[in-house]
Write a protein that binds this DNA or RNA. Structure first.
Length: 510
RNA sequence: GCCCCCAUCGUCUAGUGGUCUAGGACGUCAGCCUUUCAAGCUGGAAACAGCGAUUCGAAUUCGCUUGGGGGCACCA
């Protein structure tokens, strides 16, 4: 079947690309690539009112970012174009006309107000909402009268009044619908644009789409499509309805659940490989243990048979973990490349630009295993760049192991001086800093092993635990109680800056 | 209200009648490592929605119930 596989991703440009849509794109792409088939992108821009400026670009950017290349579609063209539905209106008009001529569709003159009113009534009476088919059997005379009123009609499909519509879904098996539960849906709107149903069926046929992999929310409109294929004399493609991606409350993933656009994930510093891997595992799995898989591995192993039926909650937590895994796998050079733009945008304005790549190259190994996403780098490493450290003086004692209870008692604001009771051994802090200062001044070479060789013995000399001394110095030198390993950090900062900072810490304690 | 879909740890999932006292991963808890934080390692808690039926035997098959989701536009 390999050369027959033609699948498509058909987004509508009504906003930023949703992760659910992109997951659909990914599955289609994986399926196409696995079978050596074609992956086609078609823009379904048939709703003029919902059109959003820049949405098409954002969608294509997302695909490119994730490495989902398309064989036919915008920018690359293809034999079945154009790939923007707004440029194919004549095709849909002709199809609708043909259906009317055949007696499978009819013109409907009902005004919007009537339809709305009718729907309200139906809902009130707990009836299933749907068009009441008033215009289905209009006489020539009635039609002429309505036409004379200058009403632009829509074209509606003449849904069979009885019988069943059944089809085989590749994921769900046989699905059956009663024709009677489907109303006469609109094919062509009064503005001349087709509805999704018409355009989708016509294009999937014309573009020789072999498999339609789309989200579960389309399952209930599939019988309409089957009906249309039949009426138009087309062979329907295979259908596979993908489980949906849900928010934490199990409803359709939306804005209120957090970031829903792939662009946001890119901008927050997720790696495309991680996002692809994570998305692939939302509704698909290889086996009982394999989780980390690159694009090639996914392509090699992907199959519809292993797609699950259940909706999957989008877990921010797990994505974060996975991103960390991919982040730790990068080489220093690769990570430097990725991280520089985030430092550039995330570091305070006072830090002079451009950011030195050579300097970043020294820092990256110290932060690599502490990052989950790229944008965290600025917060994690700002003390490597900033001149003045901003921290609470009490943190110096916290570094020495001041207990949590005592901490709560103190509650010292930034800049304020701590005057409360000192933890055991804390009176040694100024002495420790002063001694360290002297030793470091005299140190011949300011590298990590040398630093360790003088500071570790110093703790014993002062009667402090190593953790207490190192913690104190850590806060003095980085301004925080949690930071990368002390000696390496100091080596990167350099002697001059370390001495200055320890001096500043000393001043705080006086 | 009607139609359709779904149902294994909190989450993503493995499991296609016996190898399941249900496996892995995230998260969580404990311990180890350790100069802090991470990372890493080890271990723990944690699930077959319920009820019937089929069968020697059911997480796996069938039915019902319950629960959840989706759809019901001149939106896609």
């Amino acid at each position: 079947m390999s050369d027959l596989v033609r699948v498509r991703f058909a987004p509508s440009p009504t906003g930023m690309p949703h992760v659910g849509n992109i997951r659909t794109a990914l599955f289609n792409w994986l399926f196409a690539r696995h079978h050596g088939g074609s992956f086609i992108v078609r823009i379904e821009d048939t709703d003029v009112t919902r059109r959003v400026e820049g949405a098409v670009e954002a969608i294509l950017d997302s695909l490119r970012w994730l490495g989902l290349d398309w064989d036919e579609g915008p920018e690359v063209g293809g034999d079945y174009g154009p790939y923007l539905q707004s440029q194919r209106l004549e095709i849909y008009r002709a199809a609708a006309e043909r259906l009317v001529k055949q007696g499978d569709a009819y013109l409907c003159y009902c005004p919007l107000e009537r339809l709305e009113e009718m729907r309200r009534e139906q809902v009130k009476k707990k009836q299933p909402p749907g068009y009441d088919r008033r215009c289905r059997a209009l006489t020539e005379k009635e039609r002429a009268e309505l036409e004379a009123q200058g009403i632009t009609p829509v074209v509606r499909f003449k849904t069979p009044l009885e019988g069943q519509i059944r089809f085989q879904d590749l994921i769900r098996g046989e699905v059956v619908f009663e024709a009677a539960t489907i109303d006469d849906f609109v094919l062509l709107k009064s503005d001349g644009y087709p509805t999704y149903h018409l355009a989708n069926v016509v294009d999937d046929h014309l573009m020789k789409i072999s498999h339609v992999l789309r989200a579960d929310e389309w399952l209930s409109s599939t019988p309409r499509h089957i009906l249309l294929y039949k009426a138009l004399g087309y062979e329907p493609p295979e259908f596979a309805h993908l489980p949906m991606i849900l928010g934490s409350d199990r409803s359709k993933l939306s804005k209120r659940h957090g970031a829903t656009s792939v662009i946001e994930y890119r901008d927050k510093g997720y790696l495309p490989e991680a996002v692809v891997n994570f998305l692939a595992l939302l509704g698909w799995s290889l086996d009982d243990k394999t989780e980390i898989m690159g694009r090639d591995e996914l392509v090699r192993n992907f199959s519809i048979e292993r797609i699950s039926k259940t909706g999957a909650i989008f877990s921010q937590e797990k994505l974060g973990w996975m991103n960390g895994v991919y982040m730790r796998r990068l080489s220093t050079e690769e990570l430097v490349e990725q991280v520089v733009p985030f430092l550039d945008s995330g570091l305070p304005q006072t830090v002079k630009r451009p950011i030195s790549r050579d300097y970043v190259r020294l820092i990256v190994p110290l932060t690599q295993e502490r990052m989950r996403i790229l944008s965290e780098v600025s917060e994690l490493a700002d003390f490597f760049f900033v001149d003045e450290l901003d921290y609470r003086s009490v943190d110096l004692y916290l570094g020495m192991g001041l207990g949590a209870d005592e901490q709560r008692l103190l509650e010292v604001k930034p800049g304020e001086r701590y005057t409360g009771p000192l933890p055991y051994g804390a009176e040694k802090a100024p002495i420790a800093l002063r001694t360290a200062l002297e030793k470091l001044q005299a140190l011949p070479s300011f590298d990590a092993p040398s630093l360790e060789s003088v500071l570790r013995p110093l703790a014993a000399e002062l009667g402090l635990k190593t953790g207490e001394l190192f913690g104190l110095l850590r806060v003095a030198v980085t301004g925080r109680t949690a930071a990368p390993p002390l000696f390496q950090t100091m080596a990167v900062l350099g002697r001059e800056r370390c001495l200055r900072r320890i001096g500043a810490a000393l001043a705080r304690l006086k």
